[in-house]
Amino acid sequence: MNAGLDLPEIGDRHAFNLARWKEICEDPQLAKVGGRVESDAHGHILMSPPPGFSHSSRQSAILLLLSKKKGGRALAECPVSTSGGVRGVDVVWLSDLRAESALKENILLTSPEICVEVLSPGNTRAEMEEKRALLFEAGAGEVWFCDTKGRMFFFLKNQPDEAVEKSELCPDFPAVVE
Rank of each mutant, 00 (worst) to 15 (best):
G139V: 03
R125M: 05
S101Q: 13
A61L: 09
N123L: 01
S67Y: 04
L7M: 12
V116M: 04
C25S: 14
H14W: 09
T124E: 01
M152F: 07
A140P: 05
A126C: 00
S120A: 09
S167C: 08
V91L: 07
K104N: 06
P112H: 05
L97D: 09
K131N: 08
G84I: 00
V89N: 07
R151I: 04
E165M: 07
V92S: 03
V164Q: 15
S101A: 10
W144T: 00
V80L: 11
Q29V: 13
V92N: 02
R73E: 12
G72V: 04
P112T: 03
R13S: 04
R125C: 00
K32M: 12
I24N: 01
M47S: 13
C170W: 10
A99P: 01
G35D: 09
L169M: 15
S67E: 10
F136K: 06
L64C: 09
A138E: 03
V177R: 00
E129D: 13
L119Y: 03
D27Y: 05
V37Y: 00
E178F: 08
M1P: 11
K131A: 04
V92F: 01
G11H: 14
E23K: 14
G84P: 02
P79N: 09
P171F: 05
D6C: 06
L18R: 15
L97T: 09
K68H: 14
A133Y: 05
L75E: 13
H44A: 12
S167D: 09
F16H: 14
A102D: 07
S101M: 06
R151G: 06
D12Y: 08
L94M: 08
I114R: 01
E129V: 06
V118E: 02
R125T: 09
C170K: 02
G141E: 12
I45G: 01
D96P: 00
E100W: 06
I24H: 04
L46W: 11
S57M: 14
V164D: 05
A99H: 10
H55G: 07
P79Q: 08
T124C: 03
L46Q: 13
E142L: 08
G35S: 10
R58D: 03
E100T: 07
E26D: 14
E130I: 02
R58I: 11
T148C: 11
S120E: 05
A175D: 12
F53S: 10
L63Y: 15
K149C: 05
Q159C: 13
D6F: 09
D40W: 05
S60E: 12
A19R: 15
P121I: 08
G43C: 09
F155N: 02
A15C: 06
T124S: 14
L64T: 11
A102S: 15
I45S: 02
I107F: 03
A102T: 03
H42A: 13
D6T: 12
V176K: 15
V33K: 14
L64R: 15
E142Q: 10
D147K: 10
I107V: 15
K131I: 02
G150L: 08
W21V: 04
F155W: 07
R13E: 07
H14L: 03
A61K: 14
P174Y: 01
D27I: 05
N106E: 14
E137I: 02
S57A: 13
L103Y: 06
G141V: 01
I10L: 08
G43F: 04
Q59R: 15
S48M: 13
L103S: 12
G52S: 11
